[in-house]
Computed example of a mutant assay.
Amino acid sequence: MVPAGRFARWVSNFVTAHGATFHSAGPGLEGRAEDGSWFRASLPFGTVYDGPAEVSDFLDAWTAPADWGLLLARRGGYAVARLHGERIVSSKVGQRHVQGRTKAGGQSQQRFARRRDNQARVAWQAAAEHAGTHLAGLRGPLTVGGDHAGVVAVVEMAGLEDLPQHWISDVPGTPRRASLEAAVGDALSLAVEVHNS
Protein backbone atom coordinates (compact mmCIF):
# COMPACT_ATOMS: atom_id res chain seq x y z
CA MET A 1 0.00 0.00 0.00
CA VAL A 2 1.32 3.42 -0.97
CA PRO A 3 -0.37 6.65 0.18
CA ALA A 4 -1.47 8.71 -2.83
CA GLY A 5 0.68 11.65 -1.71
CA ARG A 6 3.82 9.49 -1.88
CA PHE A 7 3.13 7.66 -5.12
CA ALA A 8 4.91 10.10 -7.47
CA ARG A 9 8.09 9.79 -5.37
CA TRP A 10 7.62 5.99 -5.28
CA VAL A 11 7.50 5.86 -9.09
CA SER A 12 10.56 8.11 -9.31
CA ASN A 13 12.46 5.73 -7.01
CA PHE A 14 11.32 2.76 -9.13
CA VAL A 15 12.71 4.43 -12.27
CA THR A 16 15.99 5.21 -10.49
CA ALA A 17 16.34 1.57 -9.44
CA HIS A 18 15.22 -0.11 -12.68
CA GLY A 19 15.80 2.33 -15.53
CA ALA A 20 13.52 3.92 -18.11
CA THR A 21 9.92 2.84 -17.54
CA PHE A 22 7.03 2.66 -20.02
CA HIS A 23 3.60 3.37 -18.54
CA SER A 24 0.23 1.99 -19.64
CA ALA A 25 -3.24 2.53 -18.21
CA GLY A 26 -6.34 0.46 -17.51
CA PRO A 27 -7.76 -0.58 -15.13
CA GLY A 28 -4.98 1.09 -13.10
CA LEU A 29 -1.49 2.35 -13.94
CA GLU A 30 1.21 -0.09 -14.94
CA GLY A 31 4.91 0.54 -15.40
CA ARG A 32 7.41 -1.74 -17.16
CA ALA A 33 11.09 -0.99 -16.80
CA GLU A 34 13.88 -1.75 -19.24
CA ASP A 35 15.34 -4.37 -16.87
CA GLY A 36 12.08 -6.37 -16.94
CA SER A 37 10.77 -5.21 -13.59
CA TRP A 38 7.20 -3.93 -13.40
CA PHE A 39 4.61 -2.45 -11.10
CA ARG A 40 0.83 -2.32 -11.19
CA ALA A 41 -1.01 0.34 -9.15
CA SER A 42 -4.73 0.41 -8.41
CA LEU A 43 -6.79 3.29 -7.06
CA PRO A 44 -8.65 2.81 -3.76
CA PHE A 45 -12.19 1.42 -3.52
CA GLY A 46 -11.86 -0.51 -6.77
CA THR A 47 -11.89 2.71 -8.83
CA VAL A 48 -11.15 1.92 -12.49
CA TYR A 49 -8.71 4.22 -14.27
CA ASP A 50 -8.58 4.43 -18.06
CA GLY A 51 -7.11 7.90 -18.59
CA PRO A 52 -3.68 8.96 -19.88
CA ALA A 53 -0.76 6.76 -18.83
CA GLU A 54 0.78 9.51 -16.71
CA VAL A 55 1.37 9.46 -12.96
CA SER A 56 -0.09 12.96 -12.46
CA ASP A 57 -3.29 12.14 -14.38
CA PHE A 58 -3.63 8.86 -12.51
CA LEU A 59 -3.40 10.65 -9.15
CA ASP A 60 -5.74 13.47 -10.27
CA ALA A 61 -8.41 10.85 -11.03
CA TRP A 62 -8.66 9.92 -7.34
CA THR A 63 -10.60 11.74 -4.65
CA ALA A 64 -11.74 10.19 -1.38
CA PRO A 65 -15.50 9.55 -1.20
CA ALA A 66 -17.55 12.33 0.38
CA ASP A 67 -19.31 9.82 2.65
CA TRP A 68 -17.97 6.36 3.43
CA GLY A 69 -17.69 3.92 6.29
CA LEU A 70 -15.17 1.64 7.96
CA LEU A 71 -15.86 -1.49 9.98
CA LEU A 72 -13.28 -3.70 11.69
CA ALA A 73 -14.42 -6.79 13.60
CA ARG A 74 -12.48 -9.48 15.38
CA ARG A 75 -13.49 -11.79 18.22
CA GLY A 76 -13.59 -9.58 21.27
CA GLY A 77 -13.35 -6.20 19.56
CA TYR A 78 -14.67 -3.88 16.88
CA ALA A 79 -14.15 -0.42 15.43
CA VAL A 80 -16.59 1.52 13.30
CA ALA A 81 -16.23 4.96 11.73
CA ARG A 82 -17.99 7.28 9.32
CA LEU A 83 -15.81 9.50 7.20
CA HIS A 84 -16.11 12.50 4.93
CA GLY A 85 -13.14 12.37 2.62
CA GLU A 86 -10.13 11.72 4.85
CA ARG A 87 -11.78 13.01 8.03
CA ILE A 88 -13.40 10.80 10.67
CA VAL A 89 -16.70 12.45 11.65
CA SER A 90 -17.96 9.79 14.08
CA SER A 91 -16.52 6.58 15.44
CA LYS A 92 -16.73 3.94 18.15
CA VAL A 93 -14.15 1.41 19.29
CA GLY A 94 -15.20 -1.29 21.73
CA GLN A 95 -14.30 -4.61 23.27
CA ARG A 96 -16.24 -7.56 24.58
CA HIS A 97 -14.76 -10.51 26.45
CA VAL A 98 -14.59 -13.69 24.38
CA GLN A 99 -13.30 -16.89 26.03
CA GLY A 100 -9.94 -18.10 24.73
CA ARG A 101 -9.44 -21.59 23.35
CA THR A 102 -9.10 -24.44 25.83
CA LYS A 103 -7.04 -27.62 25.67
CA ALA A 104 -9.64 -29.58 27.60
CA GLY A 105 -11.31 -32.43 25.76
CA GLY A 106 -14.74 -34.04 25.66
CA GLN A 107 -17.73 -32.27 27.18
CA SER A 108 -15.61 -29.52 28.70
CA GLN A 109 -14.28 -28.59 25.28
CA GLN A 110 -17.80 -28.54 23.81
CA ARG A 111 -19.04 -26.40 26.72
CA PHE A 112 -16.19 -23.91 26.24
CA ALA A 113 -16.84 -23.82 22.47
CA ARG A 114 -20.54 -23.03 23.05
CA ARG A 115 -19.64 -20.33 25.56
CA ARG A 116 -17.12 -18.86 23.14
CA ASP A 117 -19.66 -18.82 20.30
CA ASN A 118 -22.25 -17.13 22.53
CA GLN A 119 -19.75 -14.51 23.67
CA ALA A 120 -18.70 -13.86 20.06
CA ARG A 121 -22.36 -13.45 19.07
CA VAL A 122 -22.81 -10.84 21.83
CA ALA A 123 -19.68 -9.02 20.60
CA TRP A 124 -20.99 -9.03 17.00
CA GLN A 125 -24.36 -7.70 18.18
CA ALA A 126 -22.67 -4.83 20.04
CA ALA A 127 -20.61 -4.03 16.95
CA ALA A 128 -23.73 -4.15 14.76
CA GLU A 129 -25.58 -1.74 17.06
CA HIS A 130 -22.80 0.83 16.81
CA ALA A 131 -22.40 0.25 13.07
CA GLY A 132 -26.12 0.85 12.65
CA THR A 133 -25.87 4.09 14.62
CA HIS A 134 -22.75 5.55 13.02
CA LEU A 135 -23.40 4.36 9.47
CA ALA A 136 -27.16 5.01 9.27
CA GLY A 137 -28.09 6.31 5.81
CA LEU A 138 -24.61 5.67 4.41
CA ARG A 139 -24.59 5.64 0.61
CA GLY A 140 -20.87 5.44 -0.07
CA PRO A 141 -18.59 2.44 0.11
CA LEU A 142 -17.93 0.41 3.25
CA THR A 143 -14.37 -0.69 3.94
CA VAL A 144 -14.21 -3.80 6.11
CA GLY A 145 -11.50 -5.89 7.75
CA GLY A 146 -10.90 -8.51 10.44
CA ASP A 147 -12.43 -11.95 10.95
CA HIS A 148 -14.36 -12.77 7.78
CA ALA A 149 -17.23 -14.56 9.52
CA GLY A 150 -17.49 -11.81 12.13
CA VAL A 151 -17.49 -9.01 9.57
CA VAL A 152 -20.19 -10.76 7.52
CA ALA A 153 -22.30 -11.25 10.65
CA VAL A 154 -21.96 -7.64 11.77
CA VAL A 155 -22.72 -6.27 8.29
CA GLU A 156 -25.87 -8.41 8.06
CA MET A 157 -27.06 -7.59 11.58
CA ALA A 158 -26.55 -3.87 10.94
CA GLY A 159 -28.43 -4.05 7.61
CA LEU A 160 -25.43 -2.82 5.60
CA GLU A 161 -25.13 -5.74 3.16
CA ASP A 162 -26.32 -3.67 0.18
CA LEU A 163 -23.39 -1.25 0.38
CA PRO A 164 -20.39 -1.78 -1.90
CA GLN A 165 -17.73 -3.41 0.28
CA HIS A 166 -13.96 -3.28 0.02
CA TRP A 167 -11.74 -5.53 2.14
CA ILE A 168 -8.46 -4.33 3.55
CA SER A 169 -5.61 -6.49 4.79
CA ASP A 170 -6.05 -8.40 8.03
CA VAL A 171 -6.37 -6.40 11.23
CA PRO A 172 -3.80 -7.61 13.77
CA GLY A 173 -5.03 -8.09 17.31
CA THR A 174 -8.11 -6.53 18.86
CA PRO A 175 -9.19 -3.37 16.99
CA ARG A 176 -8.28 -0.19 18.87
CA ARG A 177 -8.20 3.49 17.96
CA ALA A 178 -4.74 3.09 16.40
CA SER A 179 -6.05 0.14 14.34
CA LEU A 180 -8.93 2.30 13.12
CA GLU A 181 -6.64 5.14 12.06
CA ALA A 182 -4.23 2.73 10.34
CA ALA A 183 -7.15 1.13 8.49
CA VAL A 184 -8.31 4.55 7.26
CA GLY A 185 -4.82 5.12 5.86
CA ASP A 186 -4.82 1.70 4.19
CA ALA A 187 -8.27 2.25 2.68
CA LEU A 188 -7.16 5.55 1.13
CA SER A 189 -3.84 4.19 -0.18
CA LEU A 190 -3.01 2.81 -3.62
CA ALA A 191 -2.55 -0.94 -3.90
CA VAL A 192 0.80 -1.51 -5.63
CA GLU A 193 2.00 -4.88 -6.88
CA VAL A 194 5.70 -5.04 -7.76
CA HIS A 195 7.84 -7.59 -9.62
CA ASN A 196 11.62 -7.07 -9.51
CA SER A 197 13.66 -8.86 -12.17
Rank of each mutant, 00 (worst) to 15 (best):
M1V: 01
V2R: 06
G5H: 07
R6L: 11
F7Q: 08
V15T: 02
T16W: 04
A17S: 04
T21G: 06
F22I: 13
A25Y: 10
G26Q: 11
P27Q: 11
P27M: 15
G28R: 15
G28C: 11
A33M: 03
S37P: 00
W38M: 14
R40I: 10
A41Q: 05
S42M: 10
Y49R: 04
G51H: 10
P52D: 10
E54P: 01
V55C: 05
V55T: 11
F58H: 05
D60N: 11
T63D: 01
W68A: 04
G69K: 08
L71T: 01
L72R: 10
Y78S: 08
A79D: 03
G85H: 04
G85N: 07
S90G: 08
G94Q: 07
G94E: 03
R96D: 00
H97C: 04
V98S: 05
T102C: 13
Q107G: 07
Q109E: 03
Q110D: 10
Q110V: 13
A113C: 00
R114D: 09
R114Y: 01
R115K: 15
R121F: 03
V122D: 00
A131F: 07
G132V: 05
T133Y: 06
H134T: 01
H134E: 07
A136R: 08
G137Y: 14
L138S: 08
G140R: 03
P141F: 06
L142Q: 10
T143C: 14
G145W: 05
A149Y: 12
A149G: 05
V155A: 14
M157D: 05
A158L: 07
A158H: 02
L163S: 14
I168L: 13
I168K: 15
S169Y: 04
T174S: 15
R176F: 02
R177D: 14
L180R: 13
A183C: 09
D186Q: 15
A187K: 11
L188M: 06
L190F: 12
A191S: 13
A191Y: 12
E193L: 15
V194N: 10
N196S: 07
N196C: 00
